[in-house]
């Protein structure tokens, strides 16, 4: 399906999703460094509970949406956009 054939709502969705995915891709290097440093030199700031100091949680929160964002961008179906299985 081409850009012109898509509904305006799908186009608006993709416009914003591309911007967010682009930012995430540009931040990958920086976040890999942050995750590596957090894993190598654990900081124990007691303001944060143990879970919110975990480098694994940081990695999951940063990288997991990349998968859904790329899926939507590659094939923007209504199901992929709202996270429900497509018919």
């Amino acid at each position: 399906m081409t850009w012109r054939e898509m509904s305006p709502v799908t186009r608006a969705f993709l416009g914003l999703a591309v911007a967010i995915c682009g930012v995430r891709l540009l931040l990958i290097k920086q976040y890999c460094l942050i995750i590596a440093v957090a894993a190598a030199v654990p900081l124990h700031d007691h303001f944060f509970p143990a879970l919110l100091r975990q480098p694994a949680l940081l990695a999951a929160a940063f990288f997991a949406p990349l998968w859904t964002e790329l899926q939507v961008l590659l094939r923007p179906t209504a199901g992929r956009m709202n996270g429900t299985p497509s018919p």
Binding site: F48, R53, L57, A60, A61, A64, P65
Partner: peptide, 10 residues
């Protein structure tokens, strides 16, 4: 995920 990143220490 953005909410988690907003409250994570790093």
């Amino acid at each position: 995920s953005a909410a988690v990143l907003l409250v994570h220490q790093a």
